[in-house]
């Protein structure tokens, strides 16, 4: 029973840690499937988290905070889109630039506006997302096995967490079952063919980039309005890069993204909980190894040692209509 209790707690923190990863990885899925590489997920999430923290504090409304996060993140996406789609600049360079601009400006603006060392003021309950308690969660708590799973694991998360998990089938449906999704995937594989069919490659890619902005915005809002109570300096702490790793690890597929993010989230939750824990057979695993594991796994996968991750064919290449 004790073991089971530990399992439930671990699973619950895995879900919590995975939420922003899932949202950000899905965000990356939309742009990268359309042929626009995006290593600026980190920056967009950070900018969104900052906007959410500021606006939610000023308006005392969590929904205004969420809206601000999405607006800022979409604007940053459009900068990336303008540089890499319209100006045909390097997508990697543009992503790096966005990460830096956001990392610097969130601290400078936060300090100028709130004077709390780059933080935004702590949010009250109104400014944060509460937790959703599923019906009968309390009543069923004492039912063996199913009770803890239902009330401990499934119930009691932020609405954004449920949204994130719902976005996985929703993204699958958009990408694989709608006309927009088909065209979006086609533009990432063979933009010339899409152009020949009389569909604007530019406009399609811009729409993909906007989708990415919206999802990154929600991911950022989750960090400052749900996981934390306000924005703190550099609060994404590499989550954007882990999401990028998860996206590759998932071979650019929605269902795999869910599992990749849960795996990376689990590693994180496990590392936090079991620092210096001695395993049977292997003994003590250094906490640094646990932290590096998502990156190591991604490198191994990318190298084709576990399956093969093949990126969208036209990824990273700006489209030139006429030569």
């Amino acid at each position: 029973m004790d073991f089971f209790q530990v399992f439930i707690e671990l699973a619950q923190s895995t879900v919590r840690v995975s939420t922003p990863l899932i949202l950000a990885a899905l965000a990356g899925l939309f742009t990268e499937r359309a042929g626009v590489f995006d290593i600026g997920l980190e920056g967009k999430m950070l900018g969104a988290a900052f906007a959410a923290g500021c606006v939610a504090y000023i308006t005392q409304s969590v929904y205004m905070g969420l809206l601000a996060a999405i607006v800022v993140s979409v604007l940053l996406s459009l900068v990336h889109g303008y540089a890499s789609i319209t100006q045909r600049g390097s997508q990697i360079v543009s992503g790096v630039a966005i990460n830096f601009v956001v990392a610097g400006s969130t601290v400078i603006l936060g300090e100028a506006w709130f004077k709390q060392g780059g933080r935004t003021p702590a949010l009250s309950e109104d400014g944060r997302f509460g937790t959703i308690h599923l019906p009968f969660a309390d009543a069923l708590r004492d039912v063996p096995i199913l009770g803890p799973i239902y009330s401990g694991l499934l119930s009691g998360h932020s609405p954004l967490t449920y949204l994130a998990f719902l976005m996985v089938p929703a993204s699958w449906w958009i990408l694989y079952r709608t006309r927009f999704g088909l065209r979006l995937r086609a533009v990432g594989e063979n933009p010339g063919a899409v152009d020949t069919a009389g569909i604007s490659v530019i406009w399609l890619r811009y729409r993909a980039v906007i989708c990415c902005g919206i999802l990154c915005g929600i991911a950022g809002a989750y960090l400052s309005l749900s996981a934390g109570a306000g924005f703190t300096k550099g609060m994404t702490a590499g989550k954007g890069y882990i999401a990028l790793a998860a996206l590759i690890f998932a071979k650019w597929r929605p269902k795999n993204i869910l599992f990749a993010c849960l795996l990376f989230g689990f590693l994180d939750a496990f590392a936090i909980r079991y620092q210096g824990f001695a395993f049977p057979l292997i003994g003590k695993v250094p906490v640094q190894l646990m932290q590096a594991l998502p990156y190591i796994l991604t490198v191994i996968l990318l190298a084709g040692f576990i399956g093969k991750a093949i990126p969208p064919k036209a990824g990273g290449v700006p489209y030139v209509k006429e030569r």
């Binding site: 100006q87 045909r88 997508q91 360079v93 543009s94 630039a97 601009v101 956001v102 610097g104 780059g118």
Partner: peptide
């Protein structure tokens, strides 16, 4: 009120304008 993070902004903007938007 202008901490050293200002440099990070300038660095990002230089990368953006000299790199990604070099043809603008």
């Amino acid at each position: 009120s202008i901490s050293r993070d200002m440099i990070v902004i300038i660095q990002g903007l230089v990368i953006l304008f000299a790199g990604a938007l070099e043809h603008m």
